[in-house]
Amino acid sequence: MIEVENLTVRYGGVTSLDSMNLVFEKGICGLIGPNGAGKTTFFNVLSGFVRPASGTVRAFGDDLLTMPHYRRARWGVRRSFQTEQAIEELTVYDNVAMVHSPLRGSARRADALAAIEFTGGGLSPYARVGTLGAGQRRLVEVARAVAGKPRLILLDEPAAGLPDEETAHLAAVLRAIPSHTGALTILVDHDMSLVSAVCETTAVLDFGKLIASGPTAAVLRDENVMRAYLGTAEVAT
């Protein structure tokens, strides 16, 4: 469980997150909102790239924000990036085994191979990532995210730029993540059909403010959410 309290992030004069209060319970939670709403900023706070102006984030009882960023991976934070960041020079296996985790030796190896197998898509552990296509590279990132006993998985638009059949495969993989790893997964995406297919609950950000959260189907019908996406009026909360 992730409890976010009064989280505020400012870049100079721009308030990217404005006293955000939110609880992610378990399973897969969607986080949506128009461009510039603060979704990636929120991920950057959780992975330690951005220091918030104020607020706390408690993850499974631990204060996440006081951990140095490279320690968070060992604790169990995983993330993928909006622009895919699989390391081209390395093999699929090395890309997955790269994650720092409490596992050692053969357990670590088995875990990495299991993560690659979990994502499917015909990934060979020995293929160099530089030779793979976009869909498979995304799967490598997902494999890296589920490897090494994760507790919190942050996926930033994993389906961006993928054709429909690959998105469908990815959706099936994403749905299986909670039962496979037990980790809380937060999914940011603009593809509403993917979000409604995968996420049980969804939160909506707009201009750094939380405007709705709850079961996905209800949130997507919410009037404020429609307005924020269609951009007809400034949303009052």
Partner: peptide, 21 residues
Amino acid sequence: GRAWAAIRQSEPAALAAGINT
């Protein structure tokens, strides 16, 4: 070697994987 390859291509990805760059 893995850590260096990650750092060279993308420091954010390396950091997110827990590599102390």
